[in-house]
Design a protein around this nucleic acid. Structure first.
Length: 326
DNA sequence: CATCAGGGCCCTG
DNA sequence: CAGGGCCCTGAT
């Protein structure tokens, strides 16, 4: 059993995202399966975070309105934090949750779109968002490969509980991500024993690759999309499907949409063409349909996707349950 | 019980 | 550039 690290409140900062801002669907994505590292209830999100190799706990509190948004960010840590540490962490949070993304043009462009208009109305102020740095998101991407949701959850959890840090803050007991290089003394067989399967090799190589400094997230964020794609594909165990997630969530390309996985194909077919999920339309036809969202292709899909999963939070969607196999 | 297909990717021919 | 193999799990 790992030692529990108790974190205490060190800083509390109010941040103003751009309006409109909708707290809950920005901080809680029902389709993000990651468990053990976060907890959500209406208006509050608890999230573990590994920042500069220091485990911290963050409590986001909805403290404003859609038109006049305020997010209170409480930072919990073992020891007092430097101003530099706090400032850089806040900047990273603003980036990852897109506090400064201006959604006006997106909303205006599609205010009359048959498919999007109701969804935009309902979720006005929702931003793409997640708490993962590139290394962490790559781990997530790898456990998503060739696995059902249930299995992905199990793999993520077992990795966190073996290599992460168990933290407690504000009455929540969560797991915080390990640091790049922490797997240097972990063998591929150790990882296999955790039942991550063939991904053991990819995870091990990923940790080595980042340890050697062969990739720099900060620099890569500044490069163009083609360069980012090329750099990501160099990493062992990373292919087009994993890159597709990263380009949106980590690198914030709202326009680019080049991959549809088999289960997503079934779901888009149902949504856009109302086909039975046993007889989905072709991926080519789906791409053609998605073209209508032009420079906001992936952002539009994010809105549509989240809308679907929030519906499921409130009521069972029979055809969807069959596909996701939670 | 056995067999097989997954929310990919690598490697071979 | 097509297709087999890979780990594990749950469905049949």
């Amino acid at each position: 059993m790992k030692k529990l690290v108790k974190l205490i409140l060190q800083n509390s900062i109010d941040v103003n995202p751009l309006t409109p801002f909708l707290f809950d669907p920005t901080f809680h994505k029902p389709d993000h399966f990651t468990t053990g590292d976060n907890y959500w209830e209406k208006g509050i999100k608890w999230q573990s975070w590994n920042w500069q190799n220091t485990p911290v706990g963050i409590k986001f509190i909805d403290s404003g309105t859609v038109k006049n948004p305020v997010v209170k960010i409480e930072i919990y840590a073992k020891n007092k934090l430097s101003d530099e540490f706090v400032e850089s962490l806040i900047a990273e949070i603003k980036y990852l949750y897109n506090f400064e993304l201006d959604l006006t043009d997106f909303y205006n462009t599609f205010k009359n779109d048959d498919f999007l208009k109701q969804i935009i109305q309902k979720w006005k102020g929702m931003r793409p968002g997640h708490p993962s740095c590139l290394y962490e998101y790559l781990i997530v991407g790898m456990v998503l490969q060739n696995a059902s949701v249930r299995r992905s959850v199990q793999m993520f959890k077992v990795l966190l509980e073996n290599y992460g840090t168990n933290v407690e803050f504000d009455g929540k007991n969560l797991w915080s991500f390990w640091t790049v290089g922490d797997l240097s003394n972990v063998s591929e067989q150790d990882l296999r024993d955790l039942k991550v399967g063939y991904r053991a090799k990819s995870i091990k190589k990923l940790d080595e690759y980042f340890s050697k400094g062969l990739i720099n997230e900060t620099e890569l964020r500044k490069k163009d999309r083609e360069t980012q794609q090329q750099e990501l594909l160099k990493i062992y165990g990373v292919g087009p499907a994993t890159v597709w997630y990263l380009l949106f969530d980590v690198f914030h390309h709202w326009d680019f949409f080049n991959h549809i996985s088999p289960w997503e194909q079934k779901i888009y077919s149902k949504l856009f063409f109302d086909t039975d999920t046993t007889a989905p339309v072709s991926v080519e036809k789906l791409f053609k349909y998605i073209e209508r969202f032009r420079k906001y292709k992936h952002l539009a899909i994010h809105y549509i996707w989240e809308d679907l999963w929030w519906k499921r939070v409130n009521k069972n969607i029979e055809w969807l349950e069959k596909e996701i196999r939670l």
